[in-house]
Structure formats: structure tokens, C-alpha cells
Amino acid sequence: MRILVTGNAGFIGFHVARRLLERGDTVVGLDNVNGYYDPALKAARLRVLEETEGAIAGRYRFHRADLADAGAISACFSEGRFDRVIHLAAQAGIRHSIDNPGDYVHSNLVGFANVLEACRRQGCDHLTFASTSSVYGANTRMPYSEQHGADHPLQFYAATKRANELMAHSYSHLFGMPMTGLRFFTVYGPWGRPDMALFRFTRNILAGKPIQVFNHGNHRRDFTYIDDVVDGVVRASDHIAAPDPGWDASSPSPATSQAPFRIFNIGNGKPVGLDECIETLEAALGKRAIRENLPAQPGDAQETYADSSALFDAFDCRPTTSLRDGISRFVNWYLSYFGIS
């Protein structure tokens, strides 16, 4: 298939694009390679994609463009029809959204609207897009299910991603466009984002600097390894969303619709305390952390815990990577990437 992957210089988008190229698809990548975190890491990911067998065979093309530039998005789509669009580009980060909400309006709202419009005009068979576990917000029912409400976000970032889900459903209903949204739970692994806790902890532990442990380490997170997430993304994209024949307007399911629209969690289903995560990282590095215990930050959820049974039932897809194995693989990549012996 010919597939557009937005955000392919980013963490998840890079891995998805590489997987698609490895299985023989033609991939068009689109990313603005912004400076939210070190662009050198994004450039290194792009070099890996350019060196894949698929790219060498001419099955890869990259557009450097901003999602909010409607003309650039239109030009990308004008080069040929996409069988699938996998939309992973977004302004990420919870802390950043508190001080810079305009960045999220620009990329996550205006940018997503441009992608929806381009897909509508072209008649794309299926749009799969990234959401986040953060949409569950103030909900304290565990595990998080797609059947739970998601109307009380705790951060502006989460609010924009919930808005994406609602925008997608409106287009799906109005124009019959198949849409699948995926709520990611604390994704980690090789080539991960430097602003994420695991990356920052690793950097500081190796440098002998203190790590900032918010909420005194009492958070619990559903850490999900990148390869497991990519499996879910690719399988969801391959299976075109269809209307739910059992959808009841008097008691509607928020995860399905009478339109061709679906929402799925992608999480490991095994929440781990932050203290345990740090201990596992210390074991992988062979070095103890210097901890600076701090109060919880504004907008932080106490716990995330995914019920991903719907994903398994739909696509026979279940995350399997343990935290110990996942952190070990991340550490091996980190040491190799930064040339640390």
C-alpha cells in the first residue's frame, strides 16, 4: 500500500514508518522537525529511514512541512492517492502545554483539521490517528476502558487530543470516512523522546546528577514498549473501521458509532510504580540514582492503567514486552547511540 505517516521524524512515527517499509509498503513521511526537543535526534531517525532497503528501492519520500500549513498538506496529498493515512504528528508534552497552549492549537487543532480536509478531498480509505491516555483525565475508575467518559481532561494537551477524537467522529459521520483513534499509554523504548522520564533519568544517572522524582515516586504508569505499540498501530490501520451494528442511540458506546469510527486503548495493562521503574533502570545501568523527591506536578494523573481487551478482540493484538526487557533494550540503544561504553 501507499501510506502517509505524519510525524515520521518523531518517536512513534519513526518506528511505524520503518515497520511499514520493512514489510514492503510505500511510505510518504511528513514532519516539520521542530525544536521542541533536540532536532539532531529527529534527523538521526530520518537518516535511518533513508537507509532502509525500502528507501533505497524508491519506496520512501519525505516532506518537511508544518501541519498547520494547509497549502503544504494539500501539495503532499496532490502527489498521489494514499491507501492509508497514519496521523501521528502532534505537539506533545504535558508540561509544555501549560505554558505554551498556542503551540497545541497550531499543531493539534489547526493541523489535524487540515489532515481531515485533505483526507476528505482525496477519499482516503482509512485514517488512523494518535490520541492519548491523558484524555481520561479526572476519571479514577481502573483500568481505563474506552467505554468510560473522557470529558474532564487535566491538561490542555489532553484537551486537544480529545478534541481530535470528536473532530474525527464528526467527519466520519458527515462524510462516511473510516476513522480509528488510538489512545497510547506511556510509550517508551529505543529512539524515545528526551523529554520523557525514562530518557531524562538515564541521562542524569549516568552523569551522576540527581533525578527529579515527582509525587515522591508514588505515581503508577502503564508503560508500553514501542514495538507493541507499533503492532497495534499497523494492525489498526490495516483493518478499516466500520459502523457498529449494535450501536444504540439511546445508550451510545463512546468507543464505536453508527459511523465508521472506532477508539482503542494501546497499553500494556500492567501499571508499575515509578519507584519500581527507577529500580529496574538502575539494575539495567548498574548504577544507583541520586533522587530528589518533589511534590506532584500540576496536571499529573496519579495512575494510568489500560484495558486493551478491545484491541485484542478486534486485531488479535496484545502487548507482551515486560518492563525489565523493554528498559534493557532502551538502555542498550541509549549507550550505543551516545557512544557510552
Rank of each mutant, 00 (worst) to 15 (best):
A43F: 12
Y188I: 13
D244C: 08
Q91M: 14
R288M: 12
T256E: 02
G7C: 03
I86K: 02
V135Q: 04
S336G: 01
D69Q: 05
R2K: 14
T160S: 13
L109A: 08
H173C: 00
E165H: 08
E276F: 02
A306F: 08
D103Q: 10
I263R: 11
F261A: 00
V234I: 14
S308Q: 09
H87T: 09
T280G: 06
C76Q: 06
T52M: 04
A241I: 04
A70H: 03
L21Y: 01
D248N: 14
D125V: 00
S133D: 07
I340L: 13
Y188V: 13
S257D: 12
N332Q: 14
T6Q: 09
F312H: 12
L4P: 07
Y36H: 02
E22F: 01
L166W: 05
R81Q: 02
N108C: 05
P190T: 15
S131E: 10
S341H: 09
S322E: 11
H152E: 09
F129C: 00
I94T: 12
D99A: 15
L4Y: 05
P153W: 00
P298N: 03
A310E: 12
A65L: 06
D227I: 03
I263V: 13
L21T: 07
A163V: 02
F184D: 08
A9K: 00
I290C: 03
N100C: 11
N114H: 07
R45T: 07
Y36T: 04
V33F: 00
I290L: 14
T140N: 04
D325C: 05
E53K: 07
P39F: 03
D275Y: 05
A159R: 01
V234M: 02
G13Y: 10
Y104Q: 08
K161I: 13
H173A: 10
P153A: 14
T26N: 03
D313F: 06
N108Y: 05
P245W: 13
F129H: 07
T224S: 14
M1Q: 10
A75D: 15
V105S: 05
L311R: 01
R221E: 03
A43R: 13
F11N: 12
G29A: 06
A163M: 13
D69M: 10
A92D: 13
W191Q: 15
E51S: 10
N139I: 11
H126F: 01
N34F: 03
S322N: 09
R59E: 08
R2Q: 06
K161H: 12
Y36Q: 09
F14W: 09
L166G: 11
A68H: 08
W247S: 05
G176H: 02
C317Q: 10
G24S: 13
R81W: 00
G326C: 01
S107A: 15
D83T: 01
G232P: 04
E279T: 09
L41D: 05
L88M: 06
A68Y: 12
H106R: 15
E22L: 06
H126P: 06
D316G: 08
